[in-house]
Design a protein around this nucleic acid. Structure first.
Length: 475
RNA sequence: GCCAGGGUAGCUCAGCGGUAGAGCACACGCUUCAUAAGCGUGGAGUCGUGGGUCCGACCCCCACUCCUGGCACCA
């Protein structure tokens, strides 16, 4: 029986349109998912929308659009982005889905109830933002940046708290033993160092008033709604049937990999396992923490106004080349810079001059040769260094490995000069080159699925046609 | 402030106690099947600063400096 493989992206806020960071994460998760599909694992890739956050409510009001409509529209943009990037989500679970997500989250709440208690919470509340702030989020006058001059109110409210403190030692053990494996190691160490301090219990609800009656109601208390962490993380479970389709849930849970950005590592490595421990449920196996993009060396931010819209890039350069940039230019776990100049450099060097040109020259040379069928599969090529790199999630290195093969094939053609030879002598050389290209395409399948498919189709034989460039050179 | 990680060619980075490496970019040569693509050769770096250990340090130790990240309710 096939192994199952369940992988998730983080669940983005849908209060704004997607940026390149989301695109990066989608592509990374998709590539890992595709590797498992190609290996024959029964694979599920889940994403979703965190639609219950207060930020969404505020953003909708600001935009003057009814909340549900606003959320549906924005969620749709994330789904579209995925589609444009050839990212195959098997499930996109919406947080506002009452039938599946609400019931799932209420079920989780009930399972955790023995660790939930009510306590009054006191904080600085900005009426303008309708949000609590901590002191270090405020300016030197103790006012929020959105509403300078407006005094914050000290507001007291009763909320439900989760006994995170009870799970401190268990979490330390689980993380240091890699039972919950946090990749890369530096993030694992950060989590462990965080766990050295005493853990405080965390608030997991807010009043209806503060929540504007939006979000998942607390079972048995209609004055409160769940607070983001608790219900958003649970999308990983609600999407696959938790609380509404136990067969499906049992089949997929626990997650094999959660792919997340470095900013939310703690919620996934500490809060989420604690909730699951409390509920008596299985824990995710691996948490893959990727870095962030800077843009031309600067942090991406709304105030700087340098948010890069992936959709525009896709229509300008194509999804496959963007996938390549994400997967090759960034070491999987480090921050990387996004610059159009660098993008073009990499595109021309690797895609146009490298892969694209190689297929063109071999296709042209092979015009009259007839080839046998190639039966190589991804399983056949998934071995040695390539496998090792992928097992360690060093996707950029795996692509480097493929590009070495492209170089070898180019060199072979240069050395043997088949264009000088006549029919009988050139044939074995070209058969060799074509096989090498087929192998290259197979290795590329998880990374550049459409490109790999095009190459495999073009080189399937029995004769090979010359086609327009896969990646036209950019000026 | 505390705790990590890092400062190596124009850029991104690898490396190791024993005469500095890769890819991209750049220059030149060969070649023409190919997307002015390919192959080859080359220039380029006082390996953050100052000390120390050692026959010998980019690699070990100390100090300093700069950068990045983490330090709880921010997806």
């Amino acid at each position: 029986m096939a192994n199952k493989f369940y992988i998730t992206t983080a669940i983005p806020y849908v209060n704004a349109t997607p940026h390149v960071g989301h695109a990066l994460e989608f592509v990374q998760a998709d590539t890992v998912a595709r590797i498992h599909r190609l290996l024959g694992d029964e694979t599920c890739l889940l994403s979703g929308g965190d639609e219950n956050a207060l930020k969404n409510v505020q953003a909708a009001e600001k935009a003057g659009i009814p909340l549900q409509e606003f959320i549906d529209k924005n969620s749709e943009l994330f789904k579209q982005l995925a589609q444009q990037l050839h990212v195959q989500f098997d499930i996109f679970q919406k947080g506002s889905d009452q039938e599946h997500h609400y019931s799932a989250s209420q079920k989780l709440w009930k399972l955790c109830e023995h660790d939930i208690y009510k306590k009054s919470y006191e904080g600085l509340y900005c009426v303008g933002c309708e949000q609590y702030y901590t002191k270090d989020e405020l300016n030197e006058n103790g006012e929020c940046f959105e509403h300078p001059g407006k005094k914050l109110e000290l507001v007291k409210e009763e909320n439900y708290f989760f006994k995170l403190s009870s799970y401190q030692q268990q979490l330390i053990d689980l993380i240091s033993s890699d039972t919950i494996k946090i990749v890369p190691e530096t993030k694992k160490n950060e989590m462990l160092s965080f766990l050295k301090q005493p853990l405080q219990d965390i608030s997991i609800s807010r009043s209806n008033e503060r929540a504007k009656n939006w979000g998942v109601p607390i079972p048995g208390d209609d004055t409160q709604r769940m607070y983001v962490w608790f219900d958003a993380l649970n999308i990983y479970q609600s999407g696959i049937g938790f609380g509404w389709d136990e067969t499906s849930y049992k089949k997929w849970w626990p997650a094999d990999v959660h792919v997340i950005g470095k900013g939310i590592a703690r919620f996934h490595a500490i809060y989420w396992p604690a909730f699951l421990l409390s509920a008596g449920l299985s824990l995710p196996k691996t948490i893959l923490v990727h870095g962030y993009f800077t843009v031309d060396g600067q942090k991406m931010s709304k105030t700087v106004g340098n948010i890069v819209d992936p959709t525009a890039l896709i229509s300008k350069y194509g999804a496959e080349s963007l996938r390549y940039y994400f997967l090759k230019e960034l070491p999987t776990f480090a921050d990387g810079d996004f610059s159009e100049r660098r993008f073009k450099e990499l595109y021309n060097a690797d895609l146009a001059n490298g892969l694209g040109n190689l297929t063109s020259r071999v296709a042209k040379l092979s015009g009259t040769v007839t080839y046998g069928k190639n039966t190589t599969t991804f399983k056949d090529v998934f071995k040695d260094e390539y496998k090792k790199m992928i097992d360690e999630f060093q996707l950029n290195d795996a692509l480097g490995f493929v590009w070495e093969k492209i170089k070898i094939c180019d060199k072979l053609i240069n050395d043997k000069e088949p264009w000088r030879l006549s029919e009988p002598d050139r044939t074995p050389i070209l058969i060799d080159a074509v096989q090498q290209i087929q192998t290259i395409a197979i290795l590329l399948q998880p990374f550049l699925p459409e490109t790999a498919e095009r190459i495999l189709t073009q080189f399937a034989g029995p004769t090979i046609a010359s086609l327009p460039p896969l990646f036209p050179r950019l000026p």
